[in-house]
């Protein structure tokens, strides 16, 4: 479907599985969440980002690409015509055009991944495939996971789950841990927030629970979307039914740190006015969750990756 597109590879990650990890972010996602913290990860193709404040209005980019018009001030990119060749970014002298994503071979990915083996070994860490949606590129993902496993590197996959079950089957044998996102139980609501129904996501999750893998359930808590006490209560009941299959539940408070990235793609961030949930509310929701799932031997924690 897509050609092995990697958004970036980030070292020293400490929130995406145990220990010190390298996270390989693949580009392309099956969902388009309104709150998406990294809109650059949605499109499965490499694409140029435009940093307005760095542009010196030289027009070089428009001279090498018919998808870019130049009005003497700022280049206008027609993204429907962009093929992600990156010529514009090579021409730009001021760094205003930067490429997001690159087509890579598994060898290239592994070269970076292997650089930090000593840190994985000492911290009980490893590699996490994330996205976007890594299962959108199941072959590529599988290949990387397999090579990691061959080197004794712990593997994790972070998924939103909205894919055919076949994609899961390809990677399951090579994955130690799944970080599985669940956003809403209700189909209609889910469509409104993400563009897709939740049905398939929940079904895949149930199946995955039978695969005897470590699973951490992650719920991004979006104010006004899924953060009512009633809904978290229902989610808690759902989690309880999965009890044996999952390790624990994490609540991730919504943040808007990715809002500026929408500008780079000339997109609008629709949740501009949405404030992150306050700590107290998060703790309350965690308590609701914990109360329900405790009986099943599970715990819940709030994970905030940012300060």
């Amino acid at each position: 479907m897509t050609p092995n597109t990697v958004l970036n590879i980030q070292k020293f990650c400490i929130h995406d599985g145990p220990g010190i990890r390298t996270v390989v972010f693949l580009k392309g996602c099956t969902l388009a969440c309104q709150w998406c913290a990294n809109p650059v990860s949605q499109n499965p193709m490499p694409e140029p980002l435009f940093f307005y404040d760095r542009c010196r209005s030289c027009g070089q980019c428009s001279r090498v690409c018919s998808a870019i018009a130049f009005n003497g001030e700022v280049p206008q990119i027609d993204r429907s015509l962009c093929i992600g060749c990156g010529e514009c970014t090579k021409q730009c002298p001021s760094g205003a055009m930067e490429m997001a994503g690159a087509v890579m071979t598994p060898d290239q990915v592994m070269e970076t991944v292997e650089q930090d083996i000593v840190f994985y070994r000492n911290s009980g860490g490893g590699v996490t495939l994330s996205g976007g949606e890594p299962l959108m590129q199941p072959g590529f993902t599988k290949e990387i996971l397999k090579r990691c496993r061959d080197l004794g590197i712990h593997t994790a996959v972070e998924t939103a789950g909205c894919l055919p079950w076949d994609n899961f089957e390809k990677v399951i044998p090579h994955t130690d841990l799944f970080l599985y996102d669940v956003k809403h139980l209700d189909d209609k609501k889910h469509v409104r927030g993400t563009g897709q129904k939740s049905n398939k996501i929940l079904k895949n999750l149930k199946k995955l629970c039978l695969a005897d893998k470590q699973i951490i359930l992650r719920i991004p808590v979006i104010p006004g979307f899924n953060d009512s006490e009633t809904h978290i209560g229902r989610l808690a009941q759902f989690c309880r039914t999965l009890a044996r299959g999952i390790e624990h539940v994490e609540l991730l408070p919504y943040h808007n740190l990715g809002a500026h990235k929408y500008n780079l793609l000339e997109k609008q961030y629709e949740l501009n006015r949405l404030a992150p949930p306050d700590n107290q509310h998060m703790l309350k929701l965690a308590a609701i969750m914990e109360k329900e799932i405790k009986q099943a031997g599970l715990f819940c924690r709030v994970v905030s990756g940012t300060v």
Binding site: I14, G19, I20, F119, N122, S123, G125
Partner: peptide, 20 residues
């Protein structure tokens, strides 16, 4: 980065890697 018990473990693992 080094908050909580997990932070101590993380720092120790960095030191051990430094040693390796």
């Amino acid at each position: 980065v080094f908050k909580d018990q997990g932070g101590i473990t993380r720092l120790v693992s960095l030191i051990r890697s430094f040693q390796d």
